[in-house]
Simulated assay, not measured.
Amino acid sequence: MTAGGSGDAKASGEDLLIARLFEPIATHPGALGLKDDAALLSVPPGHELVLTKDALVAGVHFFADDPPEAIARKAMRVNLSDLAAKGAEPLGVLLAFAIPPEMDAAALTAFARGIGADASLYGAPLLGGDTVRTPGPFIVSITAFGVVPAGQMVRRATAKPDQAIVVSGTIGDAALGLALRLDPSRAGFAGLGEKAASFLKERYLLPRPRLALARALRGRASGAMDVSDGLVGDLTKMLAASGVAGEIEVDRVPLSPAARAAIKAEPALIETALTGGDDYEILAVMPDEELDAFTTFATAAGIGVSVIGRTQAGQGLTVRASNGAAMTFARGSFSHF
């Protein structure tokens, strides 16, 4: 995303777009006013870079008619969620997006406004990127940069046995929000009030990256990741990467009042909540002696945390239903492949 340097045939239209929409929000010195072919970023002494990248595609990760500002914020937040789970604090982002024919000037303005709003809210300044045209669909890709004190990044492959399995916030809201948008006449949603339905839809549209927990994870969690593809599937991935087993109890998984109401009306929706994804909550494993301090930190930040189970020696994940029976799922998590 540079104003110039990409060839005269492309430069005039792209330069005008960048100058109008993105230069005003790229105020970090390292962005170089978006006038160069690259950004310049300094890493604080004694720290290491943490890098992550996610791409979002219309019709896959969001609805094509979602508000452009919300699409921008979702793209920002899914990447910032990865940084949070690693114990990292944001340094900045690079943005690339492909503009389809139906995206007009007003939509682009709203999209840029969303990027700028979250860049300011989360301290993740826009540093550069690229813009292209496409016949469709709309595609957004963000690379996020963060820092951690050297040697303190929290990995997913280092969880230890005989420790607590902890999750932040509530699980299943976004997956239920998506299911609601796809089929509002389902039994679980037919009786939901407007407030509960709006809450579930918003949780799908606007994730809440738990950056406030990043510092608390460092030195406390033996392993962590964010829940993007579903609690069951992502926990299974972390346990497998770490070479340990785990067991969780469904009754201990935190659910919002809206999710509880939907599941009560249609019990089969519990599988959607546990495996559907888009939660963007923190999933961590930590020693019992760290739980009080972590919980105190989270409470001060206004974020709930719940212990949902334990790790153990062995392999695999067991999910216990209310009656103690092991649950099975048609699909453990969302997958593109």
Rank of each mutant, 00 (worst) to 15 (best):
M1V: 14
M1I: 12
M1P: 02
G5H: 02
G7W: 10
D8S: 12
G13K: 03
G13E: 11
D15V: 12
I18H: 05
L21P: 10
F22R: 10
F22W: 14
A31D: 08
L32P: 00
G33D: 07
S42W: 04
V43Y: 04
P44S: 03
A55K: 13
V57G: 01
G59K: 07
V60S: 03
F62W: 12
A64H: 06
P67D: 15
E69S: 14
I71F: 01
A72P: 09
K74V: 01
N79C: 13
N79H: 06
L80T: 02
D82Q: 11
L83P: 13
A84V: 03
G87H: 04
E89I: 15
P90H: 07
V93D: 00
V93A: 00
A98V: 12
P101H: 10
D104S: 08
D104A: 12
A107T: 03
A107R: 11
L108R: 13
T109W: 05
T109N: 11
Y122D: 05
G128F: 10
T134P: 01
P135G: 07
V140W: 10
S141F: 02
I142Y: 01
A144W: 08
A144P: 13
A144I: 00
F145M: 11
G146M: 07
G151H: 06
Q152R: 15
V154L: 01
V154P: 15
A157S: 14
T158S: 15
I165V: 06
I165N: 09
V167S: 00
G177H: 06
L178T: 04
A179K: 10
L180D: 09
L180Y: 13
R181W: 05
S185P: 13
G188C: 08
G188V: 13
F189Q: 10
G191V: 00
K195Y: 00
A196P: 14
E202F: 01
R203C: 05
Y204S: 03
R208N: 08
A212N: 07
A216K: 06
L217E: 06
S222R: 08
G223C: 05
G223A: 05
A224I: 02
D229E: 13
L231E: 09
V232T: 09
L235W: 02
M238I: 08
A241F: 07
G243V: 04
V244W: 01
E247N: 07
E247I: 06
P254Y: 01
S256C: 04
P257G: 02
A258Q: 01
A258C: 02
R260K: 13
I263L: 07
I263D: 04
E266S: 09
A273K: 10
L283N: 06
P287N: 13
E289V: 15
T295K: 13
A298Y: 08
A301R: 11
G304E: 12
V305T: 15
V305K: 01
S306P: 14
G316V: 15
T318Q: 12
A321E: 11
S322H: 11
G324H: 02
A326E: 15
F329V: 09
G332P: 01
H336D: 08
